[in-house]
Amino acid sequence: MLKMILRRLAGAIPNIVGVVIVTFLLTRALPGDPAAYFAGPSATTEAIEQIRAQLGLDKSLPHQFVLYLKELASGDLGNSLSTGQPVLAEIRTRLPASLELTLCGLVLACVTAIPLGVLAATRPGSWIDHLCRMLATAGVSLPTFFTGLLLAYVCYFLLGISPSPVGRLDVSFPAPATVTGLYLVDSLIARDMETFRAAAAQLILPAATLGLFVMAPLMRMTRASMLGVLSSDFIRTARASGLSGTKVLYTYAFRNALLPIVTTLGMVFSFLLGSNVLVEKVFAWPGIGSYVIEALVSSDYAPVQGFVLTMALVYVMLNLAIDVMYGVIDPRVGIEG
């Protein structure tokens, strides 16, 4: 088990290297003058030259790359131009908010999409099957930022059933003591149900927005994969052995169907992390997405770079987790891999 995780980790290294190179290239080797960029629009030529030397931009590209690696290794992602604060610290405090949102979106999507997909697969051609097909196509067509706005308008403005769709917690509640940084978890640890409920109320709309978007590919995959598994020989064996319908459906069919579903999770995470930025903007969610948008507005590049790198690393880690999960479900992987 540990060996498998290590092997997967080793397999992820080329991706991490690739990610680091690309983020480096994005700032240094592209057209335009990064020094002018970092110096700001009103800088004099001397100031620009000074910054060039300061950033090491007068050195050769490979040399710069080595410097960049050194900075990364010491956890230095540079400072934000507008606030002067280190980017890493800011990202670290904001990351839990983004992760909480992303994970809740994923959970919402899974608990709706997977049962619906299973249902559709067990009744092919029924109305629920058609509904799922329609939902799946409509789901991937939703611009997340628009669904978010729509949900906020309907639930807050029209129906008044949700709190003001701004931020992680209503201002009247103090943030729970930080343990994990996830408000839902932290408030539970503090046994503060009031805060938990308030945090959940703020979270539900943005999480649902995210969930709606990624429901579609999950549902599609669940349906297709269940249909495939249900018509396979070993399901017939299970039925011929008199196993109960639920046993056949869950222990035999569903666990096998999970394999392709877990594989699609990679794509789902890509969607989730990307749309996360949009949803954070819509709901003024204080995560790293909002941070990067503020930085973009002021052409502040260090946070953007830090953000891209963080997201990519998070994504690589999530993919790693998916691989491990696959290995846990499928005994064949350990041998072949």
Binding site: N15, I16, G18, V19, V22, F269, S270, F271, L272, L273, G274, S275, V277, F307, V308, M311, A312, Y315, V316, N319
Partner: peptide, 8 residues
């Protein structure tokens, strides 16, 4: 593909 595509 190692990046979340929209982020890239």
């Amino acid at each position: 593909m190692a990046f979340p595509l929209f982020v890239l």
